[in-house]
């Protein structure tokens, strides 16, 4: 970012918006990590903390929306600034939704903590790590305006989907073998599904970053199921 806006207050507004988005992204990253740890470690207290912290994420969505509207109305941004603002408006919606997915997982964690452990949850932890990494990388691509990093997020989503499918099939077998596990296995299955969706949102962010930097739309370019 060698060149800055002549109007320093405008430059500051754009900088503040970027910071807010990153802060919100950081909160969502922590939420997803916390929610899955709560599942794996059967920690209802941690799950509850994740659920309560989501209020902050929701408030930030409203604040960032307002900041974007204000800049659009008062500054009439053009070119890359315009793409940044319209991207920010969309990114917050995805981030807020990702926060909600973390809350959903945390709710399952509360439930699961009250029943006996079902099985080792390595794969769920790995899926969480992949989802978290996807978000971290998408945010990094956003801050550094790096479309190459964003493309890596798109590619990584296939691994995420494959791992989800593996977990799904595994849990299905568990349920067939012992119907008493159905309630717990379903909770885990939902958690895995939420993580897979979380990864899809990270993919959305990455696509938006590519648009923001290059001005070309890569959404719906490959036929996804």
């Amino acid at each position: 970012m060698a060149k800055t806006h002549i109007d320093k207050s405008y430059e500051a507004e754009l900088g503040a918006l970027r910071e807010q988005l990153l802060e919100m992204g950081g909160l969502v990253e922590a939420a997803i990590a916390g929610s899955v740890r709560a599942v794996v470690e059967r920690d209802a207290v941690l799950a509850d903390l994740v659920i309560r912290k989501d209020k902050t994420v929701n408030r930030m969505e409203v604040d960032i929306d307002g900041a974007c509207r204000r800049i659009l109305a008062l500054r009439q941004p053009a070119a890359s600034d315009l793409r940044f603002i319209t991207t920010a408006l969309k990114i917050v919606t995805d981030l807020e939704r990702m926060g909600d997915l973390a809350v959903n997982i945390a709710r399952r964690a509360v439930d699961l903590a009250q029943a006996p452990a079902l099985q080792p949850l390595h794969d769920l932890g790995r899926l969480a790590a992949l989802s978290e990494a996807a978000l971290a990388k998408a945010l990094d691509a956003f801050v550094t305006a790096d479309p190459v990093k964003a493309e890596e997020v798109l590619e990584a989503d296939d691994h995420l989907d494959a791992l989800y499918l593996k977990i799904f099939n595994h849990l299905l077998t568990t349920m067939m073998e012992d119907p008493r596990t159905i309630r717990r296995a379903t909770s885990l299955m939902f958690s895995a599904k939420h993580l897979e969706r979380f990864g899809d949102h990270a993919t959305n962010l990455a696509e938006m970053v590519i648009f923001m930097v290059r001005g070309t739309d890569v959404r719906h370019s490959k036929n996804k199921a």
């Binding site: 800055t4 002549i6 109007d7 941004p77 070119a79 890359s80 793409r83 001005g215």
Partner: peptide, 18 residues
């Protein structure tokens, strides 16, 4: 020109940069 200029000098001008 106003959403996705090709030239960096155009970009700087329409976004109000040095």
């Amino acid at each position: 020109i106003f959403t996705n200029p090709r030239e960096p000098r155009t970009e700087d001008y329409v976004t109000g940069k040095f």
